[in-house]
């Protein structure tokens, strides 16, 4: 009897009844789209270095352009459709980071530029920044001590 299941047993039962995500299909799509985004970034990078720019400046410039493209396609209501198709393939690259900041900014514009856009902009990306920066500080300290 389902009614007599414990909470844990019921959760397992629901899990069993639920359709599963299509992991293989999603992985292949993520690989292709994520790869393509990275190839575009690399193409931009190579273009600048071939024009005589040093590798660090070219890398920064390529990142800036990719962030701009991510923000632009979010604003054009295209990036969410790409994300639906590609999953992690469009979340992991730097364009996904731009998407995670621009999308709440667009959504909360109706609450004004201070408490809306300003306060809510990092609602998705905030944790990535907090823990990303914290981790890099810890790694930096360890590197300094071991050097």
């Amino acid at each position: 009897m389902i009614k007599e299941l414990t909470h844990k047993e019921y959760r397992e039962y629901v899990e069993k009844k639920s359709p599963k995500s299509r992991v293989l299909r999603n992985t292949i799509r993520a690989f292709i789209v994520g790869g393509l985004i990275s190839v575009i970034g690399q193409f931009i990078n190579n273009f600048f270095t071939s024009r005589g720019m040093d590798i660090d400046t070219a890398g920064s410039l390529a990142s800036i352009i990719m962030v701009f493209l991510g923000a632009l396609f979010t604003g054009l209501n295209i990036y969410d459709d790409l994300g639906k198709f590609a999953g992690a393939g469009s979340i992991v690259p730097i364009t996904g980071f731009a998407n995670s900041i621009v999308s709440p900014a667009m959504e909360f514009k109706s609450e004004g530029y201070v408490m809306g856009v300003g306060a809510r902009m990092f609602v998705v990306a905030g944790p990535v920044l907090v823990y990303g920066i914290s981790a890099s500080i810890i790694a930096g300290i360890i590197y300094y001590l071991l050097k």
Binding site: S21, D81, G87, I91, S103, M106, V123
Partner: peptide, 17 residues
């Protein structure tokens, strides 16, 4: 969606459930 989940333009996949 705005109140309960993520911004509409965020590129995420919804699970089949």
């Amino acid at each position: 969606e705005k109140q309960f989940r993520f911004p509409l333009e965020l590129g995420t996949q919804r699970p089949p459930t």
